[in-house]
Amino acid sequence: MLPLARRPRRRTGGRVQHLGRALFVAPAALYMLAFYGYPLVKNLVMGFQEYTTRTFFTGEAPWVGLANYEQVMGSPIFGRSLVNTLLFTAGSILGQFTIGLALAVFFRRTFPGAGVLRSLLLMPWLIPLIVSGAVWKWILDQDNGALNRMLRATQLTDARPGWLTSTTLALAAVVMVNIWIGIPFNATILFGGLQDIPDELYEAAALDGATGWRAFRYVTWPLLRPVVNVVLVLGVVYTLKVLDIILGLTKGGPANATQTLATQAYQLSFVEFDFGQGAATGNLLILVSLLFAVLYLRLSRQREQG
């Protein structure tokens, strides 16, 4: 909607035309209000209420002020969930972005079979997350998982790491699976960004002696920056709220080793039916996401101007 707003306004119409324009906007505005505005406001309000199973029958949700936030932030799990959320997000983004960028640069070259390989890359994106979770759970199983069987076959180690059962490895394992899921998104968007960089620039750089790493450093990276910003910020917002893959793999365990704000909010609302506390946790998560969303908007504005 931003570019539309920018367009210089033609001063040909009066009130009627204004109304006409408003009517065109109305469906979108109504849709946004009903499906984004209402849930958001409802969730914010719920965070200040004692909202339990009782509320559904009686319709009463007593106002409790900040009590939910105090409970949620005061619980011993909160610190852990917050740290896990940050580690999970940072680890996932780092892995997804680096591998995604490497693959995108790799696929700039044309070679036989490049198209097929590039479409294969999209596979993790095409598989439902529930399925990915179940399959990865098998692969990572300690006793009979494919990964540990392969490790044994290499004869390098006799150990069978408990990818999902050890408190030290579980978070790393979950991050690893999430990286696998996130690579297609990063690679595809970055690949698109690379296509926009004219070949002449590389030719000119080559004449000046900049090839390989130097070409990447002084041609590719600066011109790709706006796309990189968008990919990173969107990636962070998507990753902060990841729920399905963690539930599928570890359900936040073992011993809360992979508990994040998202899984915690789910647990409070839909397992313990304390919707007030669940909403409070969700709101904290929204707050963190919001910071990144604002960052995204600013960056995309810069990009348009730049």
């Binding site: 059962t165 408190t167 073992p254 011993a255 809360n256 397992v271």
Partner: peptide
């Protein structure tokens, strides 16, 4: 009960996985 049940499996998991 749900709150107590959560506490029980939380303790169970930390004793069984982190050597507590």
């Amino acid at each position: 009960w749900p709150k107590a049940a959560t506490k029980i499996y939380t303790a169970m998991q930390s004793a069984m996985t982190s050597g507590e």
